[in-house]
Design a protein around this nucleic acid. Structure first.
Lengths: 234, 234
DNA sequence: TTGATATTCAATAGAATAATTGAATGATTG
DNA sequence: CAATCATTCAATTATTCTATTGAATATCAA
């Protein structure tokens, strides 16, 4: 009877970990992680995801279905597109936890950054707290240098949208009497690096914020979010 | 040149996500998740893990090496055993984030609990806050009903060790004039359920704490931890 | 040294996963 | 209703992952 009981405990555990492994398996492909990373910025159509990842549309579709089967993403129709998004903030937290675990333990990650983004040595990135200090005392302007639709989906409270691609043509509108803080998708996105490089080349006092929208939200700080009720209409 | 630049960006991203996928792949097996779950309680030898998971030792060893290659676990020799443990609290947070994502989105998980642990309907589990309230006002006794070595590795500040297997023979030592709160490995562990059932059958006022040590620690609350400097000696 | 013990290694077969291609579906627009 | 477009499906192949077995290695104790 004690034996029977532990037999059935085993069956319970087997089923429990098998269910949780559905999520683990969904995280087991670099392409799917890239998709999650993009979706953490804003919802997107299959086509948009294919363009950004340089993968065939059919491949992206299949990966999205795997993510959907693990309930990590949601789909909705809009027009003739299907728009995928993270199932919840819980999924964003999972992705951030995975990334942080990598940062903590995979030396190769650090190596990648020093190899590919060597200019980061020059100027330190601002932490959330440092940025808030500057912003709350009016000593800095905050720029969201991501594409406009990501800004529309969700952005930091005091941010102005100025995609890095348009930055060069709008330099004259920027102030020279305060700091300029640029943020993008997060620590592995280069938009803010490029923005800071360009701004500094033109004599501005520019800094990169080390985080993006998902990390900001995870900290419990407020965001300006698109009314998704509206965005799903049409 | 713009083309070249985006080509090299792609190479960077490919390498980035490939590195992070090392961690995702490590999470892609139910057995490895069970190993992480056990290691979140306390370090263990290969043999102990094999016994608890009812897997062949060689299989456990191989899974541990996969976890080690992804830097999720550490090994050290002690005597003629090798003791594995989580690489850091970051890994515990990752595991908890994965589990929570499952709880949020996998209906099958909830179904499993109602099927296998139907007695949970009878009495609600205590939240951390509810338990702290009772404990700080001296109205409850806290029991750690896990095996003794897990208690030794780390336990909640006010807890007394009384493994569920020994509970029946120590009933006379327990107070009848206050609440008794039992905790175990966490929400999917049955030790506390069994303890509460036994205690209630004998007229005690017993409750299950809904969390275990990893969740307690994640909340930033203090633990009593074994001096690992000592434990590695010998 | 020898023997016992804990763990890892190596080889294998079977299962699951991934990418690719082209065709099919299904909704929207004209 | 036909044409268009976004997405999915189906079938294939190549690859990777998993579990199992028995042998090998390394450490400790006698």
């Amino acid at each position: 009877m004690e034996y029977q009981r532990s037999e059935s405990k085993r069956a319970f555990k087997d089923q429990l970990y098998e269910q949780l492994a559905r999520i683990g398996k969904a995280l087991a492909s670099p392409h799917r992680l890239e998709l999650l990373d993009l979706l953490a910025q804003s919802e997107r159509s299959v086509e948009e995801l294919a363009r950004e990842t340089t993968l065939p549309v059919a491949t992206v579709s299949q990966h999205l279905q795997i993510l959907h089967a693990a309930r990590l993403v949601d789909v909705r129709r809009r027009g003739r597109h299907r728009r995928y998004r993270l199932a919840s903030g819980e999924v964003a937290r999972l992705w951030l936890a995975l990334r942080r675990t990598g940062e903590a333990h995979l030396a190769e990650l650090e190596q990648l950054v020093t190899t590919w983004l060597p200019e980061r040595r020059h100027w330190p990135a601002l932490s959330i707290d440092a940025a808030l200090e500057l912003l709350n005392t009016g000593r800095a302007l905050l720029l969201d240098v991501r594409p406009r639709d990501e800004y529309a989906s969700a952005h930091l409270p005091q941010a102005r949208s100025l995609p890095v691609a348009e930055l060069a043509t709008h330099l004259s509108e920027l102030p020279r009497d305060c700091e300029i803080i640029a943020y993008c998708r997060g620590p592995y996105c280069v938009f803010a690096d490029e923005a800071v490089a360009l701004l500094r080349a033109h004599g501005f006092r520019a800094w990169r914020l080390e985080v993006g929208v998902p990390e900001w939200q995870e900290r419990g700080l407020p965001l300006i979010e698109e009314r998704s009720d509206f965005s799903w209409q049409v």
